[in-house]
Computed example of a mutant assay.
Amino acid sequence: MCSPHDIHVLVLTYPVQGHINPMLQFSRRLASKGLKVTFLIPISTKKSLNLVNSSSVNVVYIPDGFDDVEREKLSMEDAVEHLRVSIVQSLNDFIQKHQACEDKPAKVLVYDSLMFWALDIAIHHGMHGAPFFTQSCVVCSIYYMIHQGTVKLPLEAAHGQGHVVSDPPVMSILRPDDFPSFVVDVKSYPFALAIVLDQFSNVRRAKWLLFNSFADLEEEAVKWMGNQWSIMTIGPTIPSVYLDKRLEDDKDYGLSLFKPEAEACLKWLDSKPPKSVLYVSFGSLASLGEDQMEELANGSRE
């Protein structure tokens, strides 16, 4: 039987803040158990990436093809396809060199579920593949059932204004407007909808499915998914200082694509009366215009 120190895992992240952070935290947890972890990040993030306190994990930047392409001039569809084509090549190259040079090469590739095509690369090189889902089990089960055709789109046409009836039973209490926005309004972001559905195109070939959640949070959905696949709930993937404090040096997420302004934000918050601030998060990709900001501000006053 091999010891944890003999086990090497590759972790491939999608180059978006909300995906990098939980996957890095998971990697740190693996490393704390004695595993050797190599964290693969598309290189285009390097210029804007603030990397802090990741000594337990080996961070490697791999080519993503954006060094000679102006990403801003590409549509979302073209940018995602460009990333896929480039990462397929660079990941293949990296694994080939890794397996040729390492005495104990990695046997497992943990990859962001949005990069579902990475599973084929892992299997091609004789590795096990494990997709990492950054969203909850309930949300993922919704996408899976739509992908399988169990839940039909558009929701309103298929189910009227009543509840959506489907397995797992928890779904029966959800109304169409409780579902993710991608599927409530299928015309809003059709390309994004296609991506989240494609996550499930080959999951039955994966060794395990990893979810950034925990069983007690959504017990019914976790049990249902466990009957479909070999799953593990490995969340919440947040710094140890906010959770169990088992990792002494894990006091922050460690990676940021944006310049941290924690001190300025805390100073501003401290200047406000208690319970007077409303926090709204749009994620790292949102870019709101002046009219949208004004509309949101007006709505928050009501």
Rank of each mutant, 00 (worst) to 15 (best):
C2Q: 14
L10S: 06
L12T: 06
G18L: 07
H19I: 05
F26Y: 14
I43W: 00
V52H: 11
S55Q: 14
S56P: 01
F66G: 04
V69H: 02
E70R: 08
S75M: 11
E81F: 12
E81I: 12
E81C: 03
L83Y: 02
S86V: 04
N92Y: 01
F94Q: 03
C101L: 11
D103C: 01
V108A: 07
D112M: 04
L114G: 00
A118P: 01
D120C: 01
H128V: 06
A130V: 05
C137N: 09
C137H: 06
C140K: 02
I142Y: 09
G149I: 05
G149K: 04
K152A: 11
P154Q: 02
P154N: 04
L155P: 06
A158K: 05
V164S: 09
P168K: 07
P176H: 14
D177W: 14
D177A: 04
D178M: 13
V184Y: 03
Y189N: 15
L193T: 14
A194V: 08
D198L: 01
Q199V: 08
F200Q: 03
N202Q: 11
A206T: 10
K207H: 09
L217Q: 10
A221G: 03
I234C: 11
G235F: 09
I238R: 03
R246Q: 12
D250M: 03
Y253S: 08
L257P: 06
F258V: 12
E261M: 08
L266R: 09
L269Q: 02
P274G: 07
V280T: 11
S284F: 08
A286L: 05
L288I: 09
M293C: 13
R301G: 03
E302D: 06
